[in-house]
Amino acid sequence: MAGKGVRDYKRRIRSVNNTRQITKAMKMVDAAKLRKAQEKAESSRPYTGKLQEVLARLVAMSVQAKHPLLEKHDPIKRVTYVVVTADRGLCGAFNTNIIRRANQAISEDERPVEAGIVAVGRKARDFYRKRGYNLQGDFINLGDKLDYTQAREIGQFIAQLYEEGAADEVYLVYAHFINAMRQIPTVQKVLPVETPEEITAEAEEFAKFAPDYIYEPNVDEILISLLPRYLMSQVYHAMLESKASEHGARMTAMGNATENASELVDILTLEMNKARQASITNEILEISGGAEALKKGGK
């Protein structure tokens, strides 16, 4: 008989169904992980926000605030991008979008600068290593359970690059989490340390009315303890956002894959039934044809 037999269809359907079960399970796992990651990102916000406020006030109120991480480098020769991706794939265009955003930022920079990369996540490392970029460092296998110590390590690393002059500006590139369907690749400047304008304005307003702020023991000591912490908390926040985005992206991708598999099973089942019908019709035709022939022969 021409075309596929019923058995071939059965085999295809079973295989698509197996794949569907895997994608469905992955979707559910990532949905659960997404919820946790979101909560974690949420609960890191007060810390970062508060550090930012204290820092802005400190900078606004003391002209003599000096620290290597606040110092602007001049001229700017080397710009480092800390690219935060996932370690794993199977999450749609998630990793590609981040890397594309980073590359866009590099090519849009019209100053005569060299770009360096610090890869966080295996996908970023593999991409930049393969293409021969100046990979200044990599942090991989961070796992699904991020903790602050990992961010501290990365923060220390980039602070060192900056202080040694291996980087004159540092940007974070990560996925900003909106919801499971939407993650926005974001580029954020982290070094030299700057505070967002609205917070700076607020702090300057505050500074006018509070000249009697006490620093214990003194401004410099506090900056030494505050600035690295602020940097680390930004890295931590980016990592948490990226993790939530990764789970969201994977959940969506796997949801789509599951739907596609279901559709495919429906189509294949229909075609299998058609094929079965056709073969039954054929058999009946053959039998009745044979009977007819016998009848004629008998007469």
Binding site: L58, A210, D212, Y213, Y215, E216, P217, I222
Partner: peptide, 9 residues
């Protein structure tokens, strides 16, 4: 209560 504004390491 009513402590002056202070930042301490």
């Amino acid at each position: 209560r009513s402590h002056a504004p202070i930042v301490a390491g």
